[in-house]
């Protein structure tokens, strides 16, 4: 499968990545080559074969549930200690949406 620069840019946006123009071209070429290699899976008839998302642990082991009891956890101070920007035990992030242009002028 050969993929275009446009598909690369769309995929990058889905993955929350920004690619400079020269990277997009390079990635298009490399991903096309890798996907062409992956296309050999199409040779196999897998119609009746179940998908395997995980190593089949269930066959080897009886799973047991742990008791549903409250245990100590990190707490908000420690859990937020690595945040690039925090505020009193919260994570602080930039605005999620922008204000409409007219509101902006009024404020």
């Amino acid at each position: 499968m050969s993929i275009s620069r446009e598909v690369v840019l769309k995929t990058a946006a889905l993955a929350h990545l920004e690619l400079p123009a020269e990277d997009a071209d390079r990635f298009a070429a490399q991903m096309s080559e890798i996907l062409a290699y992956m296309d050999q899976l199409a040779e196999l008839d897998t119609a009746g074969v179940p998908p395997m998302s995980h190593s089949t642990l269930a066959e080897h082991v009886e799973r047991t549930w742990r008791a549903d009891i409250v245990k100590p956890s990190l707490g908000s101070a420690l859990a937020t200690a690595n945040a690039p920007e925090g505020f009193g035990g919260y994570f602080k992030v930039p605005s999620v949406i922008t204000r409409a242009p007219r509101e902006r002028e009024e404020s």
């Binding site: 996907l35 992956m38 196999l44 897998t46 074969v49 395997m52 998302s53």
Partner: peptide, 12 residues
């Protein structure tokens, strides 16, 4: 074509 196919090949 890719992910689901690969999971089935993983079974094989």
């Amino acid at each position: 074509a890719y992910y689901d196919k690969a999971l089935r090949v993983r079974t094989l």
